[in-house]
Design a binder for these strands. Sequence first.
RNA 1: GGGGACGUAGCUCAAUUGGCAGAGCACUGCCUUUGCAAGGCAGGGGUUGAGAGUUCGAUUCUCUUCGUCUCCA
Length: 896
Amino acid sequence: MRSAEIRRRFLAHFEANGHTVVPSAPLPFDDPNLLFVNAGMVQFVPYFIGQQAAPFKRATSVQKCIRTQDIEEVGKTTRHGTFFQMNGNFSFGDYFKAEAIKLAWELSTKSQDDGGFGLDGDRIWATVYFDDEEAIDIWHRVIGLPMERIVRRGKADNFWSMGIPGPCGPCSELFYDRGPDYGPDGGPEVDEDRYMEFWNLVFMQNERGAGSTKDDYPILGELPAKNIDTGMGMERMAALLQGVDNLYEIDETRPILDKAASLTNKRYGEHSGHAANQSHPDDVRLRVVADHVRTALMLVGDGVTPSNEGRGYVLRRILRRAIRSMRLLGWDDRALPELFPVARDCMSASYPELATDFERITMIAYSEEETFRRTLAAGTTIFDTAVTAVKASGASVLPGEQAFKLHDTYGFPVDLTLEMAAEHGLSVDTEAFHRLMTEQRERAKADSKANKSAHGNSPAYRQLRDLGETIFIGYTDLTTETAVRGIVADGELVTRAKEGQIVEVVLDETPFYAESGGQIADEGLITGDGALLRVLDVQKPLKGLIVHRVEVAEGEIGTGAVVHAQVDPEWRRSARQAHSGTHIMHAALRQVLGPTALQSGSYNKPGYLRLDFAWGSALNEATKRDVEEVSNRALRADLAVTVQHMPLARAREIGALALFGENYDTDVRVVEIGGPWSRELCGGTHVDHSSQVGALTIVGESSVGAGVRRVEAFIGLEAMRYLANERALVNAVSETLKVPPAEIGDRVSTLVERLRTVEKELERNRVAAVLAGAGALASQAQEVAGKQLVAVQAPAGVAGNDLRTLALNIRGRLDQSRPAVVVLTSDVDGRVHFVASVNPSGQQAGVSAGALVKEFAPVLGARGGGKADLAQGAGGDPSKAADALAVVVRSLSASA
RNA sequence: GGGGACGUAGCUCAAUUGGCAGAGCACUGCCUUUGCAAGGCAGGGGUUGAGAGUUCGAUUCUCUUCGUCUCCA
């Protein structure tokens, strides 16, 4: 049975049993503590912890998940994959243990003809928490599972919590016996390879307290509303139903593996035993490729782009690991263009957007491979020099420091270092390498820990949020009378704030828009009770909590005070223009460049907007003009801006654009400009008609990373002012150059050209003037101790580099077969500049320009120095020049 | 968020305790040669990313800033 069919049957089974089908949340999730969604229940957490009322009693989903903690183990074992899909069913205070167990059992064992998975019930085992008699009873008496296939397990295996105080509870896991080929008898306690876990049922029934370790915490009491959270591993079920050993061999990954094998002329499984730990390194590499390529496809599909931090870094690592695994298999060409289309064909049955979005996805992924190839090329040269150095020193071990530096600074993977070192007959000090890696890891960890305790998720916010949601009325009103619900100073709840303090204030309701969706926070005032608060920033640290950072400009403010909140209307008007302008620019970009140019981030504030979008190359002038033209035509057309609320699914149906990485509620706000002309999910504040935006002018276009470009524009009055400025500038230049504006370009380039020629000419003349006296000075050469010596005062005003040129020229005029020494001084604005130069013959005779300078410079009271062939310096008293030159003569005759 | 490295001619890169900014390829001209990565000679091309500091003197050292690459969290 194919994975897509497993998915379909799963959802159908639970939908038929009263569950609402909820689409998968995007992988990048709106939670600072979570890089990616890593379990099916993540998007339902607010319902489980009671922060929000669940809109449905029962839900089911197939959730995309990513786990990278064990990325090094991928391919080596059968159980680790970086991407997987968790099929789940959830109950929020509705059905509990009996129903959950029954639903799971039914679907697992129902015959395939009847829409089930058709597993043999006699080969299913269940584990339960050791004292969960209720679950044991259900398994045995209701389902009919014999007692010998019900296994009691401890807290580590069969008790679930989120790792922090909150809901928790026992679990029950379903295992399938894959038969004696896979390992010894005896159930999951003996061998979890033969007995494969495929479904975990969590019975959320208790409250847990704080604890020190993973399974050391008190279980406090029973929850008032009990919940069910289950997870059936899609890949595991697929492996069972497709009769393959592991998740790398199911229908959604095996074709990628086969493609990699055929490219590299490998035969998968040729050298490996049946058990996972008997895998040949090539087989491990093939599995890594299959796993990582699929994961990367899903990540890029969900809007993640490679970068050097956060989510983007995880993606980069995965892509690069895939590429270098191919390299280790012997494939040096571009690998991703061969593999991504295969991965797309594997996954698009369940995720059709991968096919429609494929051009954008590959643009990002392939350009990352190009970047990596450049990195590898640079690293290889550095590697080669390191190897030559090691060989030259007669050693046979490449130091760990070298391997670490290659990895840390130049991004050259250590496994490639190992492989290439071996080709040169060298080993690598891996112990030192790992020590350095650990040091770096600890540095980063210590830092992030120090950072977390500093600010982060303050409990004060949580307390305030528990008092209820802040009501946002800013879509319709800019002022309101309301009460101060709480004040936070330095992360602590306080009751009062004095004049001059900067604190955070939470109100019962607010017209202030908190920064989100790229729109900057509102500015304005909060007054009342004799106090005047200037609003500096507005943020939403928790869902449903709006926090105003304010400066207490006058008076004092206390909790409970009735205040008047007033958004600056001018500010808001401009902010609305900018935000609507962003949508218009986005639509215009997609109209001109095609649907690939999808927004990946934005920022807008009064008068200004910035939009990042997926695109591989710089926009030329004509394209920028086109985008501007389309945008401004939309403004002129005076399109109506409308806002409506609808279910997320409906919004997707009508093609509303959703931003990557944003987490949307099931009920979303859709902003339309001219109906279908621009349709985006957005919580921002907008104008009523596009003409109110006024004007839009692009002022910059740049790159923000591989495959992402950024446009910046001015909006409304700012756009007009910008253009007016430009016009004034052009007029000024036109007037100065005395040419019409249209001819400025030509005029400037001829001017620059001419200036350059004249400067060259001037330079030549100056040098010629300096060198004019060279012959005369050279003729003043004297013989001192068998050496030619020119030690003279050059004309005044010949400074630094010119003096050097002169000295070298004079030196060139002397007999090169014999030692020649030139020392010149010059009076430059009351300071002496001097140069000494010795020809090669003179250096051989033991005369050093540097040493000479050190001898006579003190006579002048100056400093200088240099090398044997040339030395120079400056400073001191010009009247001592003759004395200094005399020192030179004495020194030369003495050295003879 | 923390660490490392790099910004030099159109491109790829040099420049030994701070002391004449170079090479190869590309470009222009001439010569040689009937051509398909030809040879010779000559030449043009630089604000050493930007700004400040230390110094007689900074591509080199220090600080700031911008950009690129990279590792870790």
